[in-house]
Design a protein around this nucleic acid. Sequence first.
DNA 1: TAGATTGTTAATCGATTAACAATC
DNA 2: TAGATTGTTAATCGATTAACAATC
Lengths: 213, 213
Amino acid sequence: MESKEISQAVISRLPRYFRYLGDLKDLGVERISSQELSRLMQVTASQIRQDFNNFGGFGQQGYGYNVEYLYQEIGKILGMDKTHHLIIVGAGNLGQALGNYMNFERRGFILKGIFDKNPDLYGKKVREIAVQPMEEIEQFVKENEIDIAVLTIPKNSAVQVAEILVANGIKAIWNFAHVDLNVPPNIQVENVHLSDSLMKLSYNLERANKENK
Amino acid sequence: MESKEISQAVISRLPRYFRYLGDLKDLGVERISSQELSRLMQVTASQIRQDFNNFGGFGQQGYGYNVEYLYQEIGKILGMDKTHHLIIVGAGNLGQALGNYMNFERRGFILKGIFDKNPDLYGKKVREIAVQPMEEIEQFVKENEIDIAVLTIPKNSAVQVAEILVANGIKAIWNFAHVDLNVPPNIQVENVHLSDSLMKLSYNLERANKENK
DNA sequence: TAGATTGTTAATCGATTAACAATC
DNA sequence: TAGATTGTTAATCGATTAACAATC
């Protein structure tokens, strides 16, 4: 039971810190102050210190932060020290693209299964993992310890499939379907609504065009 | 020159309104009040009215909002009444997946070119569009009216390619590369950092696991 | 010790929610 | 007209920034 609830605004910034710290580490930088990091990342030093202090003091007065240590700690907070097993539901272009993306595996996200309802795809391999019929999914999820389901199926079937997954014990869904899922509050959902993102870009493009006239 | 700057928080919500209104329209619903929409979308009626009123009054006291009209207006705000020409830079799995995604075309986002530096991919077709060598990109962008460049290339080349695109007149970048681009402020960038999103899910999963123990 | 920089409290800013007068 | 619901102002809440005492 966690006492202090940390805002999603803070959480959303952690992966970016993690990325910059990883780069600094690779560059051999040993320590960094909130001010230097602030210049690098274009956010205020105040915000950096506030963000880190949500999780306890990682720094040292007069010194700053040890890059390697901070990197490790943020990694732990994000669960990067653990292995996660995932399945991909929907073996279309996007599902395959995500499955083939090596970097996820490097971070401990291991692809365990991939499913589709299209028989033409059965047996097709995505990184050694053969596409299985959708019907197998319940059994598979029950028998294997799956942490995360990646939903890359059309919106009309997404809600129903999500319910099946939840009923069989899935605790987290990475949702690429363009629809809001209706799941119990203890199930974690992270939405990636690509067309929403593209529309936002379209709006900003439009607005910038208008301003420059 | 726009007078009132509308916050990105509001803009980010518009595509979701657009989606719900589209669904309502398809269901034949003619009018809706902020309260009904509030229940449907799980946001406050107050926020709905505030959001819409950033762009002028779309409703009518005592009646509510006309679904069709509101849908059209939000569509216009998002630039959905216009055609956008885009190119995809990076013809890997993700680039191809995005290129093949039909729904973007339905919304007026027309794929005009696709580029990669891997010669094995030259000539490969993604929806009638043949992959071209990366070297062609400058000329192509100059000669064709391209609005948006979709970056689906590895992080190490992304920053440099973005600079080339900007130098040749690209005004908006949809960035899937896991790196922050450094472009002038009049260039619009929308980032889709998939691994950031997955890490956030990982954090929330972790936290939920702890709480339930 | 003096200087640097964190951790943390206080002040500010912006976004969300509530309330209600205007009006269809 | 009475009822409903917007548009909009005011109140609240939360997130960001500033300031500074603690401390390495």
